[in-house]
């Protein structure tokens, strides 16, 4: 699968991103629950490195380098020949492998099952985490009220 088809590219972007951001232990747990791992050939074993994060001056201006974050990447091939890429934030090699397995399986007829067993729960949990924080933030929003001071009778 390549990025030529914009629809497929946007879907792949979504599932790779979901695995990349997921808590490592949770991703591994969901992938393991799908059954015994099928044999794979590593094209590039999981390798931990950094991604340099760029930001913009004033939030909208010219880019600058803010600092790095850790990330782990790896590439594997299923026996059917499908190649899966795993990219995750952090240093967890098992999570990288799980992400690569998901990426590969999502390009096979098993896509629907993987989506239901791994991606849907991850998406729901991420959404719930974000909503919980947003709700707490909303509760700290200041409601101003004006006091009449009686100066202009």
């Amino acid at each position: 699968m390549t990025a030529d088809d914009p629809m497929e590219a946007s879907e792949r972007r979504a599932w790779m991103g979901l695995c990349a951001r997921a808590p490592a232990a949770r991703l591994c747990e969901l992938v393991a629950a799908m059954g015994p791992p099928e044999p794979v050939e590593w094209l590039r074993r999981p390798e931990t490195g950094t991604v340099m994060i760029r930001a913009r001056a004033g939030g909208t201006g010219a880019p600058f380098h803010l600092g790095e974050m850790t990330a782990t990447r790896g590439t594997l091939r299923l026996s059917c020949g499908t190649v899966g890429h795993g990219w995750v934030q952090g240093r967890d090699r098992a999570a990288c492998e799980a992400a690569a397995r998901v990426d590969a399986a999502m390009q096979t007829p098993r896509a629907g099952a993987v989506r239901r067993a791994v991606l849907d729960p991850l998406a729901a949990e991420e959404e719930a985490r974000r909503r919980a924080r947003a709700g707490r933030a909303a509760a700290t929003r200041v409601e101003f009220f004006t006091l009449a001071r009686g100066e202009d009778e």
Binding site: G49, V51, R54, R56, A71, A137
Partner: peptide, 17 residues
């Protein structure tokens, strides 16, 4: 650590604040 990539500039305007 090896440098794997550089990110696109982050969009702080879209921050989940």
């Amino acid at each position: 650590l090896p440098r794997l990539a550089a990110s696109r500039p982050v969009d702080t305007g879209a921050m989940r604040a």
